[in-house]
Nucleic acid binder design. Structure first.
Lengths: 162, 162
DNA sequence: CGCGCATTTGTTATAAAGTAACATAACTAG
DNA sequence: CTAGTTATGTTACTTTATAACAAATGCGCG
């Protein structure tokens, strides 16, 4: 759930802007065309906000920032865009934060895993940490796997040393 | 979030009752004494409901069932008990379901991992599936780990064959 | 083209999940 | 027994998310 109270606010921004931002949006667009999916204006706008943020965003912050001129969106507009972006792998829901984040990696379907600082909220998506033995345990229990969520809690360097 | 619609409702109950139930409650009580923690009536009651259910329960279902004679609890009563039970390892929050489940294992602190059927909701806690390389990835990113959540989605045997 | 179907969006309303804040009570150490 | 801490009771509210249905848009096809 929430962070522990933490007095030191560092939080490098990590967000995209300018050419990298439009490049990432363009790449998403291209990928949609290839997959026969539609990158519509609201979907594109939500992805843009996530890429600009460069970290986890709450749904209602997206809703508040959605409109170009300070106007908010209606909740379903943003939730539907988030559903789409998650289905296509452009974004992930971070369950333990009730937040959403642009996917850092390419289109290959990976096991999304996150390192979350419990103090400042800094969150990184990481690769290659699929749980060992999970396949075996699932098989033993008679489950066919469709996806795995890994969310690791910890302290980032600045928070640990403060 | 929710399950995919699914017409077949099997769901073996897995819940405790009678002697096994009171035994489990007694064991929790004993463990609390040893750790100098207090197994108070509301905490005990919430744990009892979780053990009886034998599977994930929503907070508001616990709230509704809390009172002995059909009376509901106030939300903070149950949420506080759930916080306590989670801290002590008697229960886990299942992030991707917004639900809570009694811990199936003993007191050793383990990485809680779950197999969740996306169709019928059947959920099992499993052991020994800590993510490979997570320690390394965390270290590389400068994180000190404090805990890990693993939630695997899939289809249980009845749902897969239906 | 223009008709029909599927997908997406707009909109209103409401459900579900969780917490803040503060008063009261119960344990526990001295 | 009294002061401090921990837990509970209670009211009110915030945050998060979805249902339901109407309007619009895109898209294949005759």
């Amino acid at each position: 759930m929430g962070m522990s109270a933490c007095s030191h606010h560092h939080q490098a921004s990590h967000g995209l802007e300018g050419a990298p931002l439009s490049g990432a949006l363009e790449a998403a667009q291209v990928r949609c065309v290839r997959l026969n999916e539609r990158m519509t204006p609201p979907r594109r706008r939500v992805l843009e906000l996530l890429l600009q943020a460069g970290g986890p965003m709450k749904a209602y912050d997206l809703i508040a920032k959605f409109g170009e001129n300070g106007a908010a969106a209606k909740p379903p507009t943003v939730y539907r865009a988030l559903d789409f972006l998650s289905r296509q792998g452009f974004a992930h829901r971070i369950e333990s934060l009730n937040a959403y984040m642009a996917c850092r990696f390419g289109e290959e379907t990976h096991t999304a895993a996150f390192l979350i600082c419990g103090c400042c909220g800094e969150t990184q998506e990481i690769e290659g940490v699929a749980p060992a033995n999970l396949e075996g345990a699932a098989k033993a229990a008679g489950y066919t796997l469709t996806g795995v969520t890994v969310e690791a809690r910890g302290l980032c360097t600045p928070c640990a040393s403060a």
